[in-house]
Design a protein around this nucleic acid. Structure first.
Length: 110
RNA sequence: AAAGGCCGCCGGGCAGUCGCGCGUCCAGGGGACGUGAGGAAAGUCCGGGCUUCACCGGGCAGCGUGCAGGAUAACGUCCUGUCGGGGCAACUCGAAGGAAAGUGCCACAGAAACAAACCGCCGGGCAAAACCGGCAAGGGUGAAAUCGGGAGGUAAGAGCUCCCGGAGCGUCGCGGCGACGCGCGCUCGGGUAAACCCCACGCGAAGCAAGAUCGCUCGAAAGGGAUGGUUCGCCGUCCCGGACGGCCCGUCCGAACGAGCUACAUCGCACCGAGGCGCCCGGUAACGGUCGCCCCAGAGAGAUGGCUGCCGCCGCGCAAGCGGUACAGAAUCCGGCUUACAGGCGGCCUUUGCAC
RNA sequence: GCGCCCGUAGCGUAGCUGGAUAACGCGCGGCCCUCCGAAGGCUGAGAUCGGGGGUUCGAAUCCCUCCGGGCGUA
């Protein structure tokens, strides 16, 4: 079982993007907002600027894989939005995973 | 053996670890089992299934197709042929109906671009010319100049005649279902229809965000005019109005629903189909048929995966090793077309060389 | 999904319908003018007409097919 759910509602995404704290790294931007309770919800955005559908799928799955590696030992539940930036398509997996971990950690520190 | 042609197929494998969607079963926050991208899922260039609207029929417009026969649910697709181009050949390519129905256009050059004669040639005239008549062989222009080459013929010439070749036409003959081929006869009349057009054939429109179901809200509930008859109940004719989602004719109607929300709901939609695989039969083939087996992705913005190791394949290198492993990601479903694609496999055929 | 549009000098456009000169403005280079610059005048360069194939004597234009970009709609 994953430690997070999927951030689906357009209204929630807009709220996180507008009011959430923001962290910028070379391969991705991240927005975070504390949630009242329950499990965390995370959304991943990969725009057309990253490349073809195959390429975008790979980036999205790698980000999800990196999140799985973080494990369930996460602090308070939150709503996160991870937006991949163009360099994410060129970089090896280890570097992308490091950025994902850093982004989540910085948002959690608050 | 080399070079080439055609057809079909694959397009990574194994293990570890962390995970996901759907289905079934067990089952109190989980677990077990099964299953889970492509040959192009792509581009959206065509054709259908399905759905709603229209539907009683005809015509026009519009769009598309364009050798013949066949295959198919259908097609602009496929197969087999015909004709024409390419190749020594296997084979391959072709929007391949009509220009003696009509209209338009053919720049510049050139006398002339479809109706004719500039330089010429010949005859008359004549000292020579002007001029009159005949001719279209030669020159020149051009992308293209009245079928090409040769001979006869003639004042000079001309399909005027003959031979070879080419093209078109025919109530013609033979072969073929047919396109067409061979023969005979006649004619020889520029090009362009991916210019308008003519001919033949096909097409109702929109699309799964189609549409259907449950619940709720709102709106509208239908006739009007003229005229004739009347037993004052009403009936007939004409006009206005409405429907026939391009227009017209013709037809029908004057009564019943229409719009929106819920809505990221449920169904459509994901087990049953123009379904897949295999054997056999018919057919040159596309394809069709009998029988057997199989059930085979699917949604709340979206699962089918991430990482590591080993192996395989390719390139570089003596080696250790290093680098690479294509094109590309389902969204209503099928049949095609087109485009992209590292590398590899199988079968048949052609030409040339060598050996026997 | 459906229905459309555009691609021409560095930039913005015309020419396309109906075939034969690729034109205009801004910008750029040089010269003149000025003490210098702006403005102005003269002059010059700069184009695979998005790529490929076809029709035609001839294609930016017509046809087919790819590529890139944009718009509308529910």
């Amino acid at each position: 079982m994953r430690w997070y759910g999927s951030l689906r509602r357009a209204a929630h995404i807009a709220q996180v993007r507008r009011r959430g704290r923001r962290v910028s790294l070379p391969t991705l931007s991240a927005y975070g907002l504390a949630a009242s309770g329950g499990a965390s919800e995370i959304g991943i955005t990969v725009s057309k600027a990253l490349g073809s559908a195959v390429c975008r799928n790979l980036v999205r799955r790698r980000i999800r894989g990196a999140l799985d590696e973080l494990g369930p030992a996460q602090p308070a539940p939150a709503r996160l939005l991870l937006v991949a930036r163009p360099p994410a398509a060129q970089v090896p997996y280890r570097q992308l995973a490091a950025d994902v971990a850093a982004a989540v950690a910085q948002l959690a520190r608050r």
